[in-house]
Design a protein around this nucleic acid. Structure first.
Lengths: 243, 243
DNA sequence: CAGTGGTCTAGACCACGCG
DNA sequence: GCGTGGTCTAGACCACTGT
């Protein structure tokens, strides 16, 4: 016999996948569900944690548990940083951008190759697909390279940020480091993920033709919502085919 | 004030990273620790769960909590498929290769662009770092493209396979799709991972100058053991890997 | 304010590993 | 059998979200 959390999770999962409870719909409160299944609230919370780990349920503190939209894997295209939901046919991504100035701590200073304490322009971008958080980007530029307009929340920079594209000068080279890991607590709460879930993390370093680092971007996506694609052409004379 | 689980986790983390508790050493029992920190066992377990998520602690039912060996992150360099442990200074990877012929099922047939049922040469490579499995590769080639020598277990092909490099003809283009997810049951047992852990999965498709697909490789690595790096030079619209 | 999820307690009982 | 971690309970109190 499986544990109660799993039998409860299985029952709820069935109700979700069969469409008895619809996407973005709220589940009954944890107290109600615990009562219905005749378990303690803690056990019920564990059952929900299972579904959360599967990406079926999203918890929002103070509001409730919600059924996530069925998966729509989007594509991150390497070297461009363009987030491309279904070939951009549907501009469903809404983005919030917060900008401010921070001092470079050890990690960021190393990434950007600047002295610790240097002033950096920081852009925190959170994209939503409908109501669900879809991606988190933290973009850092040396303060003096940040274009003036970008520091205001004008629509142009929002458009740019919406694609998590370069904010600084056009770079000559981009180096992307990809890793798979659980989310940090900040990422988990921003993206409404369980701490035991999986994220795809991309650290993108852009350099100009002189080799100076002009931008560092820390991109985080729920693992079940993204594929990252990188294309390499070993012949130099060939034009890249994107499709 | 942070939650107790986090303050406890921070304290234990400090003891581990400072070396006060050494790798592979057992922590005091959860009951003892709960007693020492004056919290309930559940809270203490939550604290350990934090460290578990960070890869610092490993739980073994009936035995205890153990400090994990510090990570040795290796590098996967995109576009070449070279697995590069510490710049190849230390050839610590041991590899087993199994080759046979299979018929293309739906998924593989789509990947390789061949009819379902086509004969494929399959290479299953499992690399070890010491005793620990380090990576799993399943490489598929159209049967007629597999070089004769590769089908035997000679040392040359083993060297090649050890780096999970191309086995077929040198390709003109490589397309790598990266995703983060929990391991399949096969992967979990091959790599000795928990089913709740994280793997980085790379699907590598190589095409020749005529656009024909000459190889498909399914690469899987434990998420906490690998970083994948991709470099793009925008001037030539081309991606290249630099050492 | 009421309703929701988040953390925590003190204790019970179960399942695993090993002598 | 004994010590370990794993699951569960019933209830308390805190923190966030809306009215």
């Amino acid at each position: 016999m499986r544990s109660r959390r799993h039998t409860i999770a299985a029952d709820l999962r069935q109700q979700i996948t069969s469409g008895r409870i619809r996407p973005s719909e709220r589940l009954p409160s944890e107290a109600d569900l615990a009562d219905r299944y005749k378990v303690s609230t803690l056990t019920l919370r564990h059952a929900l944690a299972v579904l959360q780990g599967e990406g079926l349920v999203e918890k929002i503190h103070g509001k409730g548990n919600f059924v996530r939209r069925p998966l729509r894997k989007t594509m991150y295209v390497g070297g461009w940083g363009i987030l491309d939901p279904w070939m951009a046919a549907e501009p469903v991504l809404r983005v919030t951008v917060r900008s401010n100035t921070v001092e470079a701590q050890a990690h960021l200073a190393t990434l950007l190759g600047v002295p610790t304490g240097s002033p950096l322009a920081e852009f925190t971008c959170l994209s939503y697909e409908g109501e669900s958080p879809h991606g988190l980007a933290r973009i850092y530029l040396p303060r003096d390279l940040a274009p003036a307009g970008v520091l205001d929340d004008n629509s142009a920079s929002r458009q740019t940020a919406a694609r998590f594209a370069q904010l600084g000068p056009t770079p000559a080279a981009v180096r992307e480091t990809v890793c798979a890991r659980p989310p940090t607590t900040v990422e988990a709460s921003s993206l409404r993920l369980a701490t035991a879930s999986v994220v795809l993390s991309i650290t993108r370093i852009s350099t100009d033709s002189a080799g100076r680092i002009v931008e560092a971007a820390l991109l985080t996506f729920p693992g079940d919502r993204i594929d990252a694609v990188f294309t390499t052409h070993t012949m130099t004379d060939e034009r890249q085919a994107r499709a």
